[in-house]
Amino acid sequence: MMRRLILVLALIFAALPALAAIAPDEIMSDPALEARARGITKQLRCLVCQNQSIDDSNAPLARDLRLLVRERLKAGDGDDAAIAYVVARYGDFVLLRPPIKATTWLLWFGPAVILLGGVVFLWLRVRRPKVAPAAPAPLDPEEEKKLAALMGESQPKAGP
């Protein structure tokens, strides 16, 4: 029973790569070009679902873009040129890995800056010399007297 379950699970996981949305009629006859096309479409965001690549997505628009990328490659475009073709129409947002440029510095380096800020803050906090608590003000004569009286009362009498 257990072994059978494991076998079923293993088969399901083995089939996962086949879940890519690409349909048989989209695949190019040239395996080298097809491999390049897969590489490119894995980097491009599907604008309909927004968190899947067009390689993964079943959306009709993703299929259109997969076919477009393959067409660009067939027309002799390099990988970068094919990506640039899509970016020119849909903007940087289609890149699942946003480019590093002035407008994305906050995105790329923001977390590191915040972390660094936290470390600096903590370091300054820990290093600050501890101020010894101020000594209590000395008692004035009246208080001295009160204290003496109290002490006198509670002191056990010495000797029988």
């Binding site: 604008l47 309909v48 628009l61 259109d64 873009l65 477009l68 129409r89 849909y90 903007g91």
Partner: peptide, 13 residues
């Protein structure tokens, strides 16, 4: 019908 011009306009829906 085949989204040729749509893609050139950056249409996504």
């Amino acid at each position: 019908p085949d989204n040729r011009v749509g893609i050139d306009f950056g249409v996504y829906g």
